[in-house]
Design a protein around this nucleic acid. Structure first.
Length: 400
RNA sequence: GGGUCGGUACUCAAGCGGUCAACGAGGGCAGACUGUAAAUCUGCUGACUUCGGUCUACGAAGGUUCAAAUCCUUCCCGGCCCA
C-alpha cells in the first residue's frame, strides 16, 4: 500500500466527516485492500446540483481513487413515497423517460468530480417492487415504534404538532433493504440520513449479511451562512453556474465559513488549510482568502483560466465599480418605451409594481444615472444601458 | 367513533363584522456604510392603474349582511386527549 493511498484512507475517515461507524472496522477493510461496494442513494428528481450536494460525492471520489466500486442508487421506488426529510408531499410518479433524463442530468453534473464511466448505476424499483406484504412485514418487524420515533426529525415534528404518516416509517426500511440488494460494504450520506443509514445495518444483519459501515458528511451551509444550502432558500452555488456567478456567491459567504468551505468544497490538502487558518488568525484580510477560495472552487467546475477571468471581472465591477466587460444585449421590437414597462418585459423586475418599487427605492440606473420617476419614457433609438441594483446589467436596443 | 383546538401572504404569527392587501418577527429586494463579509441604519415586500382607484387573496363551497379573514352551514385537512 502506497503512501498516497494511506493518505487517502486518512482523508476518507477524517476529512469532512461527521461520523464514521464503525471506524475501526472500516479502517481495517480499507487497509486490507479488498474491493468494497460503496453505496450512495440519490433522489431522481432531476434537480440542479449545488456544491453542497458535492460533499458526499467528493467522499465517493476518494473511495473511487482507491479502486472501490461506487454504486449510485437512483431511488425511483422510494422517490414515489418521498423521504420524510422533506415536506410530506405526494410525489408524482415519473415516466421512465423522465427518470432516465434525470439520471443523465445528474451524472452530467457529478462527472466533474467522479469518474462516471467506472461506477455502477442501479434503480431500487428493480428489487423493491418485487417485495410482497409478508416481506414488508418482516422488514418492519426489525424495528420498534420507539426506535422509529427516535429519529430526530420525527421528534421535532411531533414536538411541533406536525403530522407523521405511517408510510414514512417505511422509508428507512426500503433504504435499508437497498443495502441488502447491493451487498453494500459502506454507505455514505448527509447527517440527515443517519437513521436511514443505520437502518441498513439492522436490515443487512436480519438478512444474514455483514452490516455496512456508514459515513455521514456535514450538510454544507449556504452562502447566507445560516441555513443549509438549497434552492428554496436561494443560498446555493450551483455546479453549472457561470464562473462569474460562482465568484460573487463565494465572496458573499460569511467569513467564519471560509475554512469549512475549504474543507468541504475543495481538494486543498488539510495542511494547507491549516496554514490558511493561521493566516486568518494572524489578521490577514479574509477577503483575499475568500478570493482564493472562489478561484479554487471555480477551477473545479470550470477551469483555472475561467477562475482568473472571474476574479478580474469581480474586481472590476465591485471593487472598482466599473461596468462588466460583457453585458447582455436585448433587442426589442419597439422604438421607445416607458421605463416601468421595459423593466418588466426584460425581466429585470418581476412585475410592473416591482419595477415601480425599485425605481422609488433608488435602485435603477439608466446609462449610469440614477432615475427617480416611473413615468420616464426611454428612447431606444440608441442602445440604452439599464442597471438594477448592483449586479443586474442589461443593454436594450429598439427596432430602429 | 367521541371530545377538543386549529388551518391567515415565502416562513412563523396577530387580527375575530367596516379604519384589512391584512399588526409584528424572520426571510427577500433596494439604498447608505463596506471587503457583494459581519454588524448597523433607511425604504419596500399581491397584481393592474389614466395614481382617483380597480381586481385577486386569510383551507374549500355556499349563506347572512349595505359590508366578512372575522358570523352561520356543509365539506376537506391536521394536532392533542379519550376509546
Amino acid at each position: 500500500m502506497s503512501k498516497s493511498d494511506l493518505q487517502t484512507i486518512n482523508n476518507i475517515l477524517n476529512r469532512g466527516t461527521v461520523e464514521v461507524l464503525v471506524k475501526k472496522d472500516l479502517e481495517k477493510k480499507l487497509i486490507s485492500g479488498k474491493k468494497l461496494n460503496i453505496k450512495f442513494g440519490i433522489d431522481p428528481s432531476g434537480k440542479d446540483l449545488h456544491i453542497g450536494h458535492m460533499v458526499p460525492i467528493r467522499k465517493l471520489q476518494q473511495f473511487q481513487s482507491l479502486g472501490h466500486k461506487i454504486q449510485l442508487l437512483f431511488g425511483n421506488f422510494t422517490g414515489q413515497i418521498g423521504d420524510p426529510t422533506g415536506k410530506n408531499q405526494t410525489r408524482t410518479i415519473k415516466t421512465q423517460e423522465e427518470l432516465e433524463a434525470n439520471a443523465k442530468h445528474y451524472l452530467s453534473q457529478v462527472k466533474k468530480i467522479l469518474d462516471i464511466k467506472n461506477i455502477e448505476v442501479v434503480w431500487n424499483a428493480d428489487w423493491l417492487k418485487k417485495l410482497n406484504f409478508a416481506d414488508v412485514l418482516n422488514l418492519a418487524s426489525q424495528f420498534t415504534v420507539s426506535q422509529m420515533m427516535e429519529r430526530d426529525m420525527f421528534q421535532e415534528r411531533t414536538k411541533k404538532d406536525e403530522p407523521v404518516s405511517v408510510h414514512e416509517f417505511m422509508y428507512p426500511l426500503m433504504q435499508g433493504y437497498d443495502s441488502v440488494a447491493l451487498k453494500a460494504d459502506v454507505e455514505i450520506g448527509g447527517t440527515d440520513q443517519t437513521f436511514n443509514l443505520l437502518a441498513g445495518r439492522t436490515i443487512q444483519k436480519a438478512y444474514g449479511q455483514k452490516p455496512q459501515d456508514i459515513i455521514t458528511v456535514p450538510i454544507l451551509e449556504g452562502t447566507d451562512g445560516k441555513m443549509k444550502m438549497g434552492k428554496t432558500t436561494n443560498n446555493y452555488i450551483g455546479v453549472n453556474e457561470p464562473a462569474n456567478e460562482m465568484f460573487g456567491k463565494v465572496m458573499s459567504v460569511p467569513d467564519d465559513l471560509i475554512i469549512r468551505y475549504y474543507e468541504l468544497a475543495t481538494t486543498i490538502p488539510t495542511e494547507e488549510i491549516n496554514e490558511i487558518k493561521n493566516k486568518l488568525e494572524r489578521g490577514i484580510n479574509p477577503r483575499d482568502i475568500k478570493m482564493q477560495l472562489a478561484k479554487e472552487i471555480i477551477s473545479i467546475y470550470h477551469d483555472s483560466a475561467a477562475a482568473d477571468i472571474a476574479e478580474k471581472e469581480f474586481v472590476q465591477i465591485f471593487s472598482n465599480k466599473e461596468l462588466p466587460t460583457a453585458i447582455e444585449v436585448k433587442k426589442l421590437a419597439i422604438s421607445s418605451g416607458n421605463i416601468v414597462e421595459l423593466l418588466s418585459v426584460t425581466g429585470l423586475a418581476s412585475s410592473k409594481s416591482d419595477a415601480r418599487r425599485l425605481i422609488q427605492g433608488g435602485g435603477v440606473r439608466i446609462n449610469n444615472e440614477k432615475i427617480d420617476s416611473p413615468d420616464l419614457e426611454i428612447s431606444l433609438k440608441k442602445e440604452v444601458l439599464i442597471q438594477v441594483g448592483k449586479r443586474k446589467f442589461l443593454k436594450i436596443t429598439g427596432s430602429n
